[in-house]
Design a protein around this nucleic acid. Structure first.
Lengths: 326, 326
DNA sequence: CTGTTAGCGCCTTCAG
DNA sequence: CTGAAGGCGCTAACAG
């Protein structure tokens, strides 16, 4: 029909025919091409699917996740693509929601090795990318070298320390909060957490501290309040730590609060490092790992759009501030 | 075909036929029903469209917007609906992206009276709701009574003051930052801003200050740094304000910084109020307007799903803290 | 510049 | 419990 051209290539239709179509459309209450029918016919939905953590609303609770999404949004807006966030709830039917999403490609926020979402996405045979990890055959991977970064920031955190400790993200999707010593990498199912712990381990061993002697405060969530509580516990141990490397600036902010409450001087009594170089890190003068989640989000979107090949590992750097020993 | 039943009503198919279908599917590389075709046939996409401000990435830069989105996410996750954020860029083709979105309903973050998006959505004849305003015939409206809330918090801000002032959101989508006196409501195209200014006006007039004598620092964006700069300018006026009502806690945080930099005591030299009761408000001890953007987001989602009628105006309250006079 | 044809993949309806 | 038919609304490709 000429009607289709009227909407899709107006120039291919005479002014007369076009206005006839348009007036008829108004009379019939026709509001333009139907998006689903168009997607079916074209074979493209012009939407990117985003899977954020174990519950959809997580996307809007973690400030780093928000930066990441903003990066995706920048690229989607330029490309005219919708950003479709999938309704993940943590229930067993999550994987079934992957194939029923009308999207051209997928972006997955870092998850655990055993997350069934990953297989479901792999089976879709559409462009897809994982942020942070795990690496999955057939899917792209965007992120920094977490082990190297943890090694580097851990070396700064633990410099001059005798009793280093770590405040960690959870080890698995069970999200058990606990205090342990020298986590075994095989028990750690979140690859980002695993790599960072391995990096901290290297840093500890370089100051001649055996990993099994390093206390690790494992938090169930990335949350300042929980980090504060677990730090208070660490500081009340018989041999309290004199350096703590945390996995986010959020957590580090909680560590700082607990240190202040316990009367510790920073960095002399307790050196502290964060991760991400968020606004709170510069406010608090935290030594931290700088990376751009926004740029990484944009990179993910380009891969999921099929616009770019999988990029090389993203850049990072250690930002030294007053929370560590010179 | 039996194949369709195999995926949609497995119980309606014998075990034998089902496994035959499933093995054939694997051999043919068939990954289950196609989402677009299913949407076309069913007449429903199981996705909600969200329009956030003038550029898609705005959604992830404003912390209040994040709360609002989290509320939408809660409801979408429960309903198994995707949340589709539309690629709005501020360009002239934004309105064209409304009809091409494959969604069952629309949620619009507060915008200006003259935003062409609104007409485009009205024309879609699908469930749709606007947060904050403007009110559009045929669309739902969710939000608080901004005028009443501004009147109430303004009364607290201006109590005992002689030279009240306001730090405001922009008046129109042109987003011009300026200092003016007693804005004319007719020039204010953002209804939320307009209503709040009217409320502050009432509060000023109740302490016998004519509105045209009240300086208004109009910021282009909701941003602490800009509020800080404009407050510095206000405080350097020949008759500097001794009370400032801001339109967000973000802005109020900037006002506080400028006040401290100018050596003003809070609240004695300068009373300050914010809006939203964000975390920063309790950190800074700000008097503010409490409202739940998260609950309002959820209410919007229920309306856009057609699950609920348009709710009554959302609750709010004034939270008094140390930033205002006794 | 305009008109026609032929499906995209699915699922509701009806018959076996 | 299984099979067949038909059409949702659209647009690529091909005539005229």
């Amino acid at each position: 029909m000429t009607a289709s051209y009227t909407y899709n290539r107006p120039s291919r239709v005479s002014d007369e025919a076009r206005s006839k179509v348009l007036t008829a459309a108004v009379q019939l209450g026709y509001g333009g091409p139907d998006a689903s029918a168009r997607s079916l016919r074209r074979g493209s939905t012009r939407a990117l699917g985003v899977v954020m953590g174990e519950h959809l609303s997580y996307a809007f609770e973690d400030p780093q996740a928000a930066s990441f999404l903003a990066g995706i949004a920048d690229v989607c807006a330029d490309a005219g693509y919708c950003m479709t966030i999938l309704p993940i709830t943590g229930a067993s039917d999550d994987a079934a929601r992957i194939p029923s999403a009308a999207v051209d490609g997928f972006i997955v926020w870092t998850t655990s090795d055993d997350d069934p979402i990953l297989q479901a996405i792999q089976a879709m045979k559409r462009p897809a990318v994982v942020h942070g990890g795990p690496a999955i055959p057939g899917l792209g991977l965007v992120g920094i070298d977490n082990r190297a970064a943890a090694h580097a920031v851990g070396a700064v955190a633990f410099a001059g320390a005798e009793r280093p400790a770590v405040v960690s993200f959870p080890l698995s999707r069970a999200r058990i909060g606990t205090i342990m010593h020298g986590a075994d990498a095989r028990d750690v199912l979140f690859p980002v957490t695993r790599e960072r712990l391995e990096g901290y381990r290297q840093a500890a061993e370089e100051i001649d501290i055996a990993w099994h002697r390093v206390p690790i405060g494992v938090c169930a969530h990335n949350d300042a309040a929980e980090a504060e509580r677990i730090t208070a516990t660490l500081l009340s141990l018989p041999e309290p730590p004199d350096a703590i490397a945390a996995m986010s600036d959020e957590q580090a902010a909680g560590v700082v609060r607990a240190a202040v409450a316990a009367g510790r001087a920073i960095p002399d009594d307790l050196a502290i490092t964060g991760w991400d170089d968020a606004a709170t890190a510069s406010h608090l003068g935290l030594t931290t790992v700088a990376q751009s989640l926004r740029e990484q989000g944009a990179a993910c979107a380009r891969v999921a759009l099929g616009e770019a090949p999988n990029p090389p590992a993203a850049p990072w750097s250690v930002v030294r501030r007053g929370s560590t020993r010179h």
